[in-house]
Computed example of a mutant assay.
Amino acid sequence: MSTDPSPSEPDVAPSAGPPADAVPEGPENPESPETAETAEAAPPLPKRRIWVVFAVAAVLWAIDLITKNLAAANLEGKDPVRILGGLIYLQVIRNPGAAFSMATGMTWVLALVAAAVVVAIVWISRRLRSVGWAIGLGLVLAGALGNLTDRIFREPGPLRGHVIDFISAFAPNGQGFAIFNIADSAICVGGALIVLLSLLGHDYDGTRTAKKKASK
């Protein structure tokens, strides 16, 4: 009795795998050329601008203090002095309220608010890298310090002191516009500059909002 031979198994060549030293291409490779180029293209962060804040604040604070003292010494109790063809009238009033004579019955509250503004700006300034933001915050800081100085050291007493205002625009006695001082002007200009920078997409850290969105 004959038996059939077992069928021979086909010769199958083993599949060739990738070489051991092969490096995958694409973004998964952390050392790919694309990743290296992206890292090289990222610009360095600007320098911190905290010194700009305090330099601007110191200059404007000094100007505000000097002009208030000069006005109090030379203009108090006298008729308004007309300058610049009537564009400005110089006269002294002692204001217990906020900027432009608002909230006149809340002197001590306004003093505490000004102190809180000073602390907040000092804290934020540590992360500033934008010159524009530094100038704007320096102006606001100068204005807050200028009026806070009056509230602490002028009559009738600490946290109740009246702020010296001496600039009346367009007409005397605040008839054309509320009487103000250099500190009030610094707060308004600094606040307007910060709003403008925000609308233009310039952030306090020196970057731009549009570029941040594009990178995402």
Rank of each mutant, 00 (worst) to 15 (best):
2 S>Q: 05
82 R>E: 15
71 A>C: 00
89 Y>K: 06
37 E>Q: 10
194 I>M: 02
125 S>T: 10
208 R>C: 01
145 L>I: 08
25 E>D: 08
28 E>C: 06
131 V>T: 15
55 A>Y: 03
130 S>M: 07
108 W>E: 13
195 V>N: 03
75 L>K: 02
174 G>R: 08
101 S>V: 11
208 R>E: 11
181 N>F: 02
129 R>L: 11
185 S>Q: 03
164 I>Y: 06
108 W>V: 09
7 P>L: 12
109 V>M: 11
216 K>Y: 02
92 V>A: 11
150 D>R: 13
137 L>Q: 10
95 N>A: 02
186 A>G: 05
32 S>W: 00
131 V>E: 00
56 V>D: 01
175 Q>W: 05
141 L>G: 00
173 N>S: 12
79 D>L: 15
211 K>M: 12
32 S>G: 00
173 N>M: 11
84 L>P: 09
130 S>T: 09
141 L>K: 08
24 P>V: 07
108 W>M: 13
91 Q>M: 11
34 E>I: 00
17 G>I: 07
166 F>C: 10
197 L>M: 14
1 M>V: 14
206 G>A: 00
131 V>I: 10
167 I>L: 15
86 G>V: 04
177 F>V: 12
23 V>D: 05
198 S>R: 05
134 A>W: 01
72 A>I: 09
29 N>G: 03
172 P>T: 09
58 A>V: 08
9 E>Y: 04
11 D>P: 06
53 V>C: 05
3 T>I: 12
14 P>V: 09
201 G>Q: 06
4 D>R: 12
107 T>L: 04
39 A>I: 15
31 E>T: 07
189 V>H: 01
87 L>Q: 12
162 H>E: 14
15 S>N: 10
60 L>M: 15
201 G>V: 08
170 F>Y: 14
154 R>K: 13
55 A>H: 07
48 R>K: 15
80 P>S: 05
150 D>I: 12
154 R>S: 10
171 A>T: 01
1 M>P: 13
44 P>K: 13
73 A>I: 05
17 G>L: 10
70 L>S: 06
173 N>C: 06
199 L>W: 14
176 G>T: 12
215 S>I: 03
58 A>P: 00
3 T>F: 13
3 T>K: 12
89 Y>T: 02
102 M>C: 08
95 N>R: 03
33 P>V: 02
128 L>Q: 00
107 T>I: 08
122 V>F: 13
49 R>D: 01
209 T>P: 09
82 R>Y: 00
83 I>P: 12
